[in-house]
Design a protein around this nucleic acid. Structure first.
Lengths: 144, 144
DNA sequence: CTGGAACAGGACAAATGAGTCCGATAAAAA
DNA sequence: TTTTTATCGGACTCATTTGTCCTGTTCCAG
């Protein structure tokens, strides 16, 4: 459903947010380890997230990434997707027609646009902090 | 959202079903032309659809593909997806965790599984004939 | 029964996505 | 100021998806 890049971005964001809630800053190696994602690839993803202002990065000793709760409330999942260069599903057509819309619907349009829009709303309405606050049950890693 | 292969499969299936309703059998060249998809690639997709028994194929002169209404009622979109070798989104996890389920949920599980399940139900409950019978308005091609 | 019209299917080529490597840069600590 | 720790970012490789090509096979028509 989502690309690998996107999945890694979701996991990295959540893992960093969890750590930040405990005042902990995570290094790239930490994040790769806790998400079970390839380190070099995770570096790219984090770069994108940092450039988009979703996480803040710091170089050098005691450096790493963080995303404090106050900021995490302002970040939703759609923003994470867009940070790694993927559009949410907005005007996506199930049949791949560029010209498909409610005025010019493809045969699947009515059925598909309902669930597509529900998905988009979910991505828009779900902020990172809300994902994190539910799991005070000791989850700190999101490995496969 | 769907792969190209899948999009082509949807389009080809619908286009063939439309023609069959008029007792017309479509050749590969016809289908590629009406869907705006590459001919050789469409051939592969149709092969899969034929092997799965979704469309019926016939070789030689006056050959081609068809999918009469009676059969089209028994074919849903999930079957088309599976015919080209793709699983519907069933147990898909938004974060790419293989072990994610209601007992062991990832942080996005609750929000995501709702819309994912709605999508799966849509694919299951939508049969090809119902897609076709709405558009007696002269649509016979599904080009980009 | 032979020629041409069509699908069947394997092998190949191109494009995109996933993942790696390594030097450059920044910042803190010694 | 030097060393060490860490991100930054470009260039590269590998895998998968997408797309092409060509030969074989089936089947109808004359």
């Amino acid at each position: 459903m989502f690309s690998k890049t996107c999945e890694y971005a979701f996991r990295a964001t959540v893992v960093v947010a969890i750590a930040s809630k405990n005042g902990e800053r995570l290094t790239l190696a930490d994040i790769a380890e806790r998400t079970g994602a390839p380190k070099a690839f995770t570096a790219k993803v984090l770069q994108d997230l940092a450039r988009a202002g979703i996480v803040t990065s710091r170089r050098g000793p005691n450096g790493g990434f963080d995303l404090p709760p106050l900021q995490a409330r302002k970040v939703n999942l759609r923003m994470v997707m867009e940070a790694v260069g993927e559009d949410a599903f907005q005007n996506d057509c199930a049949m791949g027609l560029g010209s498909c819309n409610s005025g010019h619907p493809c045969p699947m349009h009515d059925q598909f646009s309902k669930v597509r829009d529900a998905l988009d709303r979910m991505l828009e309405n779900t902020d990172v902090n809300s994902l994190v606050q539910d799991l005070n049950n000791g989850i700190t890693r999101l490995k496969v």
